[in-house]
Write a protein that binds this DNA or RNA. Structure first.
Lengths: 327, 327
DNA sequence: CTGAAAGCGCTTACAG
DNA sequence: CTGAAAGCGCTTACAG
């Protein structure tokens, strides 16, 4: 907020010219004499004048800005997304303002409210706060359930991918497949894992599931917990690649051979999976496609001509199993 | 740009009320009858009305937005920085718009120009384009040379850190220390490396230096090149952790024992360094401090009261050697 | 080359 | 509860 008093009229007075001359001088328009320009520039600097962007924007015409709301930018999933999204937005002349909710829920709400005031639309991970905010600007939710309302959103249908991952493990002779989740309330990914095991009559009990913090350090600990809690597990599906890489490391540290003794499969398809040894098998989500869909849905929601009919308000993405060395 | 004709007066006409009533109804102010409010909301939806943010901003008073310009958001160095910076900015009520220059230089210029129109100040990696732009808004340059002009900037003084890293390697008995750089024109880090070797009479020749692409894949290749080009190297300093992690992987793949046969030291202090095996020794840059300084310099440049005197326009950060397993 | 006028689209007092 | 007025800070024609 903080209004900062110095306006163009102050500069005009200081430089002894009219305010439109100030505007012209400062914007480098040709029809100003050198001496006047210098005087104006000096005056502006002396007063520490900064043009008010809102006023400039108002008169220059609308420019679109979208917000990108993420849970935690430090999960490499998001920078890749942000990178593509910002490129695609730039191609349309849109700006992107970043909103990293972080782990502190109290601050997150305020941060979200703040970003909503600055943007024409929001793309982001669904949170209760975001859902409530959909009154003020259009919201394109990322990674919602494939069924549900017809709000603009991108759903990721994990069912076939998780089936493929588990089938793959079974095909390689795994019989006791555990899961590391990122929250104590079962994620959709975990529910699909359970359903698949049950449907195929595969071994499962309470010890099959471990909850981890959503960091690679969490994964390292989860590996220990898993070995203690479910010693006969010969494979593990992990909520995401960040945790999975930690699990991999925890297992290696504990002298467990991956994949021989225990196979590991992550979800997301992050680059870091190719960085570790053994390389991580993963269920990859195409973040470029995700970003592209998000931008198109924003365009449709903003009513940009030619985008409205581009395929409905809800898109569905299907992850792909990428088999590497850890399974 | 794209002006989208629907304004508050259109809605007013459609709903048969005055425009200030529209404003009140849409902003949820109390003094509007329910029936009127409904009529206005309906009209607004029918016309697909979106309030013009610039106009709102103009009347509500100035709100500050800063731009964060980075080379490549996919290098984990930047998300950590962006994350902290956006948190600190939020604490001051500032917004952060993201500008990922990417690898395509042509597009980068346009993207930069675009972001400069939307922000009150810019924080970012120095590029020629950015330097030239410092006329329009204050620029706080990140990672400049410790000497130089008095523009607002944060310098990182690698000299003591690189000395410490090389001393550490020598203390561990290394006698032939190579370097992997990220560009063919020697980086400042490489120059410091050379100077230190020379000053201490350590072995060096052209084969000591390898150039790598600035990705971990580049690092993997660089490992091969290094082994071929400089087979007697027993240690290597790498331009950054992303490349270093690739080098580590390349060496492991080639059956080279790290650190026994060849020690590896990276620069940046990224989390991924603790993720790999062996864990990466690195020269860590405190990105939280970096972000904090950047925000303070922006505040000073914008003339926020109480910040101006907070310690001059140039800050210097000194990296710290973090010895882990790879050396 | 420089100034007076009009207006961008909204909100905030001020009347009624 | 609703409307008429004024103004946020700038730029863009339009005169001179």
């Amino acid at each position: 907020m903080g209004t900062r008093g110095v306006t163009i009229v102050d500069v005009a007075r200081e430089a002894q010219v009219s305010r439109q001359t100030v505007s012209r001088a400062l914007n480098g328009l040709p029809e100003v004499s050198e001496s006047t320009r210098t005087r104006v520039v000096e005056a502006a600097r002396r007063l520490n004048y900064r043009p008010n962007r809102a006023a400039q924007g108002l008169v220059r015409g609308r420019d679109i800005t979208i917000g990108l709301v993420v849970h935690d930018l430090r999960n490499p999933y998001y920078p890749e997304l942000a990178s593509v999204l910002s490129r695609l937005a730039a191609e349309r002349g849109w700006g992107v303002v970043l909103c990293d909710l972080g782990t502190d829920d109290a601050a997150a709400g305020a941060r979200l409210a703040d970003v909503l005031r600055r943007v024409d639309a929001v793309v982001g991970s669904v949170t209760p706060a975001l859902t409530g905010a959909s009154q003020s600007v259009p919201v394109v939710a990322l990674d919602v359930e494939p069924v549900g309302s017809d709000e603009p959103a991108i759903a990721i249908d994990y069912a076939p991918g998780i089936a493929a991952a588990l089938d793959h493990l079974v095909a390689r002779g795994r019989r006791r497949i555990a899961m590391v989740d990122s929250s104590s309330t079962p994620s959709r990914r975990r529910l699909l894992y359970r359903a698949h095991l049950q449907r195929h009559g595969l071994a499962w009990d309470e010890t099959s599931e471990v909850v981890s913090a959503d960091t690679h350090l969490g994964g390292v600990e989860a590996a220990t917990t898993l070995r203690r809690q479910c010693p006969d597990a010969d494979a593990v599906l992990v909520f995401n690649d960040v945790i999975a890489v930690g699990v991999l490391k925890g297992l290696t540290r504990a002298g467990v051979a991956v994949p021989e003794e225990l196979a590991v499969v992550g979800i997301d398809g992050l680059d870091i999976g190719t960085l570790v040894t053994p390389e991580l098998t993963t269920l990859a989500i195409d973040r470029t496609a995700l970003a592209r869909h998000a931008i198109e849905l924003v365009a449709a929601a903003l009513g940009s001509p030619g985008d409205t009919a581009a395929g409905g308000a809800r898109r569905v993405l299907v992850p792909t199993l990428v088999v590497r060395e850890s399974s």
